[in-house]
Design a protein around this nucleic acid. Structure first.
Length: 594
RNA sequence: GCGCCCAUAGCUCAGCGGAAUUAGAGCAACGGCCUUCUAAGCCGUAGGCCAGAGGUUCGAAUCCUCUUGGGCGCGCCA
């Protein structure tokens, strides 16, 4: 409908332009909107005010000129000038309900639009380090990312969802040693666990599995493990460091572990714990309704020489230099605050080097657009990554970085502390089990991702009926309930074709409103995709559910008059489809009864 | 100190790269509505100097600048 009005205005403007009455204009800038106040009509346009200035005409005069030039259209009831120069439109009732036929024709595809025209987009999200279970902080990125993927797919983009697995580097060594020390303890060795080790129960679980599978084949004497190891950090009651260095301490243990175990056994432990944690993460995400097409390994970048290739490319472009034994990238040439090390003086490549390689690889894969969803704490990272892309001679416009703000967790009024190292965190799994996967997802997706967010665990748990998700799901269940009652009451089976023939009987204001809302759904999907804002879909569904509830409460649907009943059921059936489609986009279920 | 994000009702948040003398929801508060399709609902009342101050214009919660208040980031860590 909006589209039809837009076309009408544009073609009419072209007519005026040909006649030389107005100057050329930008079609895309002409907006059709829904008036806030229904008494103003069904639609409104600001076109006259927009074009007033370039044509040196009074907006109202221009509006009148435009209206006079409109061709005769049967669905257009009236076009009036209002206020400073708005044009208010009223359309025929039939036109408002025309959307219903479309909904039935497209069914679960209603809402799909072709904004993306099949363009290939990659969305990388979550990418939490595989050093422990996902915690609630990852939940927001997971929910937002998967909803965005879904929205983009509905908007006609071809999307690949990817998880970047940081399975290389020092933290993998710390992880390995953490498991090994737990294993040694299980073997009966007297070991003191490093303060910087990973302390979660999952570490012990893997250690136990290794003990079962390997017996004492990985055992070493505690004395040897801690030989020449510098002192671990010692804290006073206030948490100040009295002496020792936890980083050096664990690094020393790592050196000993490598020597005592040998490369193969060391790798065996590393692979085992990595596998266990990754399996857990995959299962967790899957249960959360988050699915990835690719799990991309950082280690594979090193193994296949991509890191070297990327660095060579930078070298060839003269973007690297050596200083103090390290190799630096001139990121300041690209707006970064300082140059960054890519290879340390000990020869080890930095995480940033991997990341350059990763983006190098992504760009080579030929995506039209690459979307990175990062936690807001990574914002300082953007300039150097963009810089690296440009320095490699690529177009950084292909990269879009979306930052997800932290969700601050509260238990009542108390902040819930999170730390993977200490093992004291609320896991995403715990959260899902407590308040439900649907509610968790919806709660996260409802909010704009760039908005700080308070997540009160007690509230979410104890008063889950406050969650607007139930409001929407209930609307869906009610629609289903009506059809269940239809059979119970012995009325004839409803059919879409019969209903579509009776739409003239939908004369109530609330019915027209509901139908117009249904017509908006594809636009909402398009807008959500354009703005990368899945929450727009959530708010749309809230509005739609409200109209449904209101209609349901004020209008008897299962009336004796066959034609009226059939007509109303048609509206309900279409509403149910749109509610279900919308909920599916957000990855939450649409229950038939509650 | 520098940079990024943010500030809207008691609380949690919308407000589509500006518009029609009344800024919206939900929750919390108050008052109505179940002998008819699910009351996890509906209808109504109350509640806001859109952090503050300037600026741009026909018009600013929305754009610009500054101030205040909060989150985060500024390693040869990952």
């Amino acid at each position: 409908m909006k589209q039809a009005l837009h076309t009408l205005i544009v073609t009419t403007l072209h007519t005026l332009q040909v006649r030389g009455e107005i100057a050329p204009f930008d079609e895309a800038s002409i907006k059709i909107e829904l008036p806030r106040d229904k008494s103003h009509g069904d639609f409104a346009s600001n076109v006259a005010m927009l074009l007033a200035k370039p044509n040196a005409l009074n907006p109202r005069v221009l509006a009148q000129k435009l209206i006079d030039a409109f061709p005769v259209t049967e669905w257009l009831v009236s076009a009036e000038i209002a206020g400073p120069g708005f044009i208010n439109f009223r359309v025929a009732a039939e036109a408002k309900f025309a959307v219903l036929a479309q909904v039935f024709q497209k069914q679960s595809d209603y809402g799909r639009v072709n904004l993306g025209e099949g363009r290939l987009v990659q969305v990388e999200f979550v990418s939490a380090n595989p050093t422990g279970p996902l915690h609630v902080g990852h939940g927001r990125g997971a929910a937002y990312g998967s909803a965005l993927v879904s929205v983009l797919r509905h908007a006609g983009y071809q999307v690949e969802a990817e998880y970047y697995v940081n399975d290389a580097g020092r933290q993998m060594d710390i992880l390995t040693v953490s498991v090994w020390l737990r294993y040694l303890a299980l073997c009966g060795e007297q070991v003191t666990f490093p303060s910087n080790g990973y302390q979660g129960d999952y570490i012990i679980t893997t250690a136990r599995a290794l003990l079962t599978e390997q017996g004492d084949g990985l055992r070493a004497q505690a004395q040897a493990v801690f030989a020449n190891v510098s002192e671990d950090q010692v804290l006073d009651d206030a948490g100040n460091v009295l002496r020792g260095d936890k980083e050096q301490h664990i690094d020393d243990i790592i050196v000993n572990a490598r020597a005592l175990l040998g490369a193969d056994k060391y790798r065996l432990i590393l692979d085992r714990v990595l596998h266990d944690i990754l399996s857990d993460i995959k299962e967790d995400l899957s249960e959360f309704g988050v699915h990835f097409d690719n799990w991309f390994s950082e280690r594979s970048l090193m193994d296949t020489g991509v890191v070297d290739a990327a660095l060579e490319r930078l070298q060839a472009n003269g973007q690297l230099y050596e200083q103090g034994g390290a190799i630096w990238f001139r990121s300041t040439d690209y707006g970064d605050t300082k140059d960054r090390v890519v290879v340390r003086d000990n020869g080890i490549k930095t995480y940033f080097a991997s990341d350059i390689a990763y983006h190098y690889n992504k760009l080579a894969r030929g995506y039209d657009k690459i979307i990175n969803i990062w936690g807001s704490d990574h914002h300082g990272y953007i300039p150097r990554v963009r810089g690296a892309i440009k320095a490699m001679g690529e177009d950084d416009a292909r990269l879009m970085v979306l930052l997800v703000q932290f969700a601050v967790l509260y238990r009542g009024t108390e902040k819930a502390a999170m730390s993977t190292r200490s093992g004291q965190f609320v896991t995403l799994r715990e959260l899902r089990e407590e308040i439900g996967t649907d509610a968790t997802r919806f709660f996260y997706v409802m909010r704009r991702c760039d908005q700080h967010m308070d997540f009160d665990l007690d509230l979410a748990k104890s008063k889950s009926n406050e969650n607007p998700l139930f409001y929407i799901q209930y609307a869906h269940a009610r629609c289903c309930g009506v059809f269940a009652q239809l059979a119970v009451k012995g009325y004839a089976h409803w059919q879409a074709q019969d209903g579509l023939a009776q739409l003239a009987l939908l004369t109530e204001e609330s019915e027209a409103e509901l139908a117009q809302k249904l017509a908006q759904f594809p636009e909402v999907i398009a807008a959500a995709a354009r703005d990368s804002e899945p929450h727009q879909v959530a708010y749309y569904l809230k509005d739609l559910a409200h109209l449904l509830h209101s209609y349901y409460n004020n209008t008897m649907l299962l009336v004796d008059d066959d034609d009226v009943r059939t007509a109303r059921l048609t509206l309900i059936a279409a509403t149910r489809i749109v509610l279900a489609n919308g909920l599916a986009v957000l990855g939450v279920s649409a229950p038939e009864r509650m």
